[in-house]
Design a protein around this nucleic acid. Structure first.
Length: 208
DNA sequence: AAGAGGATGAACT
DNA sequence: GTTCATCCTCTTG
């Protein structure tokens, strides 16, 4: 097992990190239930100048506080009352940069994922979409702030030598940005081209 | 195949 | 009281 190191997470360019997270292996291990998958879709959020980010303009609240932590921890929050979305905190301390994980290709613990998803068949709907993959992996809001660079918190990310080339990545606008105006058009949503385990594109996408 | 509406709760104003 | 970085089910064509 090769855990991603701090030097990966603390770089300044959250968009670059978003692209590099594609092809990495995300693992959870709660109560001896090991589940894992390849990250196939990500979305970048940049606090200081990104209206779509919870921490826009460096706004600190009890919820966003963890985003200002040094890179390498998890940021998890509940949306619409029912879904816990998993984000990776990046950048140096006091930089509110995060990457939302939106799609996962299942690798291990498929049976646990199915159980957590109500006995659903093994098909893309099992883990395509941030709410779905959070549920399949058993990630909850209480995991916000856990360290991703060791396996003590039950959540971590591994390097498995699966390098994704720029030509295998497509970019597109982000989702759910009704109040974010011009920021909603920033092409900061990345997916592995042709991968079936991602959520559906909502707009035109283009090659890098 | 595509769209509408409901479920549901925490954070913020 | 309003706002959500969502998902699921039920409807229509």
């Amino acid at each position: 097992m090769a855990l991603l190191k701090k030097s990966f997470y603390t770089r300044k360019d959250v968009v670059q990190i978003s692209k590099e997270l594609l092809g990495k292996k995300l693992v959870t291990n709660f109560n001896k239930k090991l589940t894992s998958g390849i990250i196939v879709e990500t979305e970048a959020y940049r606090g200081p100048d990104d209206k779509a980010c919870h921490a826009f303009n460096n706004r600190r609240t009890p919820r966003t506080e963890v985003m200002f932590h040094e890179g390498g921890v998890a940021y998890v929050y509940t949306i619409y009352g029912m879904y816990d979305l998993f984000n990776v905190v990046t950048g140096e301390e006091n930089m509110a940069h995060v990457v939302l994980i939106r799609g996962l290709e299942p690798l291990e613990g498929l049976d646990f994922m199915q159980l957590r998803r109500g006995g659903m068949d093994i098909k893309p709907l099992l883990t395509a979409g941030p709410g779905r993959l959070g549920m399949a992996l058993g990630i909850k809001k209480s995991h916000s702030g856990v360290n991703l660079m060791d396996n003590k918190g039950g959540v971590w990310i591994e390097e498995i030598g699966n390098k994704i080339k720029d030509t295998d990545i497509v970019a597109g606008p982000r989702v759910g940005m009704s109040t974010a105006e011009e920021c909603s058009n920033w092409p900061w949503r990345f997916r592995i081209k042709g991968n079936k385990w991602t959520s559906k594109p909502n707009h035109v996408e283009y090659d890098l």
